[in-house]
Amino acid sequence: MKLLESWVGRGVLQVFLGLMTLELEVQGDTDWDKSLRLYKEVAGLSMTGCGLFYVLGGVTCIGCLKRSRQRRHLDRMKAERDLAALRKQEEDLKARLASYTKT
């Protein structure tokens, strides 16, 4: 899913799921029901907090930093390929020059 590839999309989805978890109704007063309400609240708040972290991270350009790092890596790879091509060309030119000096 394209939505889950971005930090903001992932965060919005987690916030939605966290809020939906908090909206669940648990009936009863047994110990099981009380612990279930506690776990529901902890899970909902944790998921909402993580979602907010993702949204804030996406808004503050963590995605931009990732793209910048990828762009630098691609630029470095291109520079290495260009350097290798220039070295090969230099060797070819030296070989041609050497053939001229022998005659």
Rank of each mutant, 00 (worst) to 15 (best):
M1K: 10
K2H: 12
K2I: 09
K2S: 13
L3T: 15
L4R: 07
E5L: 14
E5P: 01
S6H: 11
W7A: 02
G9K: 00
G11D: 01
G11N: 01
Q14N: 15
F16N: 08
F16I: 07
L19T: 00
L19W: 01
L19Q: 01
M20N: 07
M20G: 05
T21R: 02
L22W: 00
V26H: 00
G28Y: 04
D29I: 03
T30C: 07
D31Y: 10
D31N: 11
W32M: 14
K34F: 14
L36F: 06
L36K: 04
R37E: 06
L38A: 12
Y39C: 15
K40I: 03
E41W: 04
E41P: 01
V42S: 11
V42M: 10
A43D: 04
G44N: 05
L45Q: 15
S46A: 14
T48A: 08
G49C: 07
C50I: 13
G51L: 00
G51S: 04
G57Y: 05
G58L: 06
G58F: 04
G58P: 02
V59D: 10
V59H: 11
T60R: 07
T60Y: 10
I62P: 01
G63T: 03
G63P: 02
C64W: 02
K66Q: 15
R67G: 06
S68V: 05
S68L: 10
R69H: 13
Q70S: 08
R72P: 00
R72C: 02
H73E: 07
L74M: 03
R76M: 11
R76Q: 10
M77T: 14
M77F: 14
D82Q: 04
D82W: 03
L83E: 04
L83C: 11
A85G: 04
L86Y: 01
R87W: 06
R87F: 07
K88L: 10
K88Q: 13
E90H: 14
E91M: 08
L93T: 06
L93P: 05
K94I: 13
A95F: 00
A95M: 03
A95E: 04
R96I: 04
L97Q: 15
K102Q: 09
K102T: 06
T103I: 14
